[in-house]
Simulated scan of single mutants.
Amino acid sequence: MKILMVLEREFPEDERVEKEALSLIKAGHEVHLACFTRQNRTSEEIFKGIHIHRKPISNFILKKASVAALKIPLYFKFWKDFLFEINKKEKFEVLHIHDLPLARVGYEVAKKIKAKWVLDLHENWAGLLSVSEHTKTFLGRILSSNSEWEAYETRYCNVADQIIVVVEEAKDRLVKKGIFKYKIAVVSNTISIPFEVKEKEIYNPFTFIYAGGITYHRGLQYVLEGLALVNQSFSDWQLVLVGAGRYVENLKKQAKELKIDNKVLFLGHQPYEKMMHFLAGADCCLIPHVKSSHTDHTIPNKLFQYMYLKKPVLASNCDPIERIVKECQSGLIYDFDNPEQFSEKALEIIQNKENHFGENGHQKVIEKYNWSKEETILVQHYDNLKKNII
């Protein structure tokens, strides 16, 4: 089949989207991808067999109109015009929409060109907006209503031909909203294996590491409080933070107030290879996300990276993360906002180096939580769609 994926960001790089596209190409499909560009990239390019179509987007449409998309459809018009323009030449059989915002565009364009359409929900979008800072402002609340996004999700999930989510919890949430179970596939955020880290960082003290965005909702403020408690009985440790975000200065101030700033290293954003270099040398990897309707219905692929690298995982009690860590016996779970519990679990990992968490997680990734398993589900989902087209 001839497939047009639609992505609201620059491409490459998006690891999940790339893996899905390459898996479908391997299965015999022709995959195109429509995305915007703010970097003056070429309007058309073939990348690893993916036919990329790009359109420049203004800052106003991207930053302002996208937030108000349900109120003022200028953002939707940008995308519809773009997709109709590409389809004049290519004639697609399937539209594959990545994430909820462009669901309406996918539905309306697919209906017009007589194509099937797939809605690929990487996140619980309304849940994400409920914890996003830009929706907390007066203007943000007016332009981006959570209840409207919830209704929007229900409407377009009901009319999508197929739906993809990243965890069972997300599927269960949609089924509770009345979406037919048979058309929802779980294609998780697992990793491609094998992979090898050529060199690893050598650390002297016991090293905790976090890799990812740094915002309030990543929960690192509770980690710092917990480590200050750890420091009272065990002082030979350090925390390495790989990533950037608007909450960095808050954390630096907090670390100083807790008198542990000499043990916290802020490395900023790092290229993938460098990030893996730091991860490979750590003793314990953290996923401290604040528990919310967003984090209870998605899964970070770094969990599987950590496990494949044979690292014990210390994570907060977000539903999918807790389920997988406990199933795999790959680490310990603490209540996300409980520094005392964090410190207890951290000390347990420090004091019990023969815990087998790393080996357990590594084996589970090899057996179950890897992309070859998800690829089979994705391709079968498209086989079902093809039967309906024929």
Rank of each mutant, 00 (worst) to 15 (best):
L22K: 11
P12R: 03
S43Y: 14
K256W: 04
M5F: 06
E30Q: 14
I97E: 05
A315W: 02
K26I: 04
V242G: 02
D99F: 13
T42P: 15
Y334N: 15
D383A: 11
S23R: 07
D296Y: 08
G245C: 09
Y107W: 09
R54Q: 03
L143P: 00
V17W: 06
G358Y: 01
K252Q: 10
H297K: 13
Y222I: 02
V131L: 09
C318Y: 00
H51Y: 13
R218Q: 12
A103T: 06
C318F: 00
I179G: 04
Q232M: 14
N338C: 03
F278C: 07
E44R: 13
A160R: 06
K263Y: 08
Y308H: 00
R218N: 15
Y222W: 12
A315P: 02
L74K: 08
F266Q: 05
L100D: 05
K19I: 07
K19E: 07
E8T: 12
E44G: 10
E340F: 11
K26W: 10
V230M: 03
D283N: 07
N388R: 14
F60D: 10
E10A: 00
H294E: 06
L100I: 02
E153S: 06
E359R: 02
I366G: 10
G243V: 05
K310N: 11
P12H: 02
A34C: 06
N250L: 00
M275Q: 12
I163M: 10
I164A: 08
Q351K: 09
R41G: 10
C285G: 15
D14I: 02
E169I: 01
R155P: 00
F234E: 13
A126I: 15
V197Y: 11
E13C: 08
G178D: 07
G281S: 09
K19P: 06
Q238P: 05
S343G: 06
M276A: 14
F234P: 09
W371L: 00
K310W: 03
I113Y: 04
K2Q: 04
L4E: 04
F266K: 07
R54H: 12
A110C: 03
L378Y: 00
A282I: 12
K364N: 12
H217A: 14
G361R: 04
E169S: 08
L241C: 08
F208C: 00
K114M: 13
K176R: 12
L128S: 03
K64N: 14
P271H: 06
A315I: 01
